[in-house]
Amino acid sequence: MLIITRRPGEKVMLGDDVVIEVIEVSGSSVRIGIDAPKSIPVYREEIWTAVRDENAAAAKSDANLPEDLPLKT
């Protein structure tokens, strides 16, 4: 992993189009700003991981799904 030291207000470029800026450092939190093209979705990693895992689990579903199911009311 590349590790870079930056101060608030300083930025990192990912390629030509993605800019990551350190906005503020406060205690154990860092606020960062991300400027990316619309074609690149940006996620918090833990949400991305949870959704990836659910997608993978859904994709393991058997072809025979029940029909005529009791619906929640």
Binding site: E54, N55, A58, D62, L69
Partner: peptide, 16 residues
């Protein structure tokens, strides 16, 4: 998306 399972009570959906 739906996570199918052996029993209906283990079926879940990803609302997030």
């Amino acid at each position: 998306t739906v996570r199918a399972a052996e029993t209906l009570e283990d079926f879940s959906a990803n609302l997030r």
